[in-house]
């Protein structure tokens, strides 16, 4: 762990905030998203959780971009957002379709295929 923090601490502080802070937030977001995905049963909320995980990555990218003083991270984030949007469109269409079929958004209603 010390190695991990040592790498981070070399970064130039941004108003007292170090890269570590951003990364911790990002990691927390990612974990929250993951936990949410695992614990919630509503399809829409589950989807939102994946979005949160995407955005956690986005946050990390931004922070790294600032850390490395280049714009690659930001460019990446733009594309991530695009993809997220596309996924959102897809997700919503699917969710609507499913709701029409079963009148429920409970993910566990869909467990016919198994084994």
């Amino acid at each position: 762990m010390s190695l991990f923090l040592a790498q981070l601490s070399t970064a130039e502080p941004i108003g007292g905030l170090t890269l570590a802070h951003f990364l911790v937030v990002s990691a927390v977001m990612f974990t929250l998203g993951l936990v949410g995905f695992l614990s919630r049963r509503n399809l829409i909320i589950m989807f939102l959780c994946t979005e949160m995980m995407f955005q956690a990555a986005g946050l990390a990218l931004i922070a790294f971009g600032r850390f490395h003083m280049n714009h690659t991270g930001e460019v990446f984030v733009i594309f991530v957002l695009t993809i997220a949007a596309a996924e959102a469109a897809l997700a919503l269409a699917l969710v609507v379709l499913l709701y029409r079929r079963k009148q429920t958004l409970d993910a566990e209603a869909w467990a016919e295929l198994q084994g």
């Binding site: 589950m46 995980m53 956690a56 990390a60 990218l61 850390f67 991270g73 990446f76 991530v80």
Partner: peptide, 24 residues
């Protein structure tokens, strides 16, 4: 479809985060 999509998104989030760390 729903299983594929949701789990796929989860997987995508994982490698995206991995990519971010690699970039970092």
């Amino acid at each position: 479809g729903i299983k594929y999509f949701f789990l796929g998104a989860l997987g995508a989030a994982m490698f995206l985060y991995g990519f971010a760390l690699l970039y970092g």
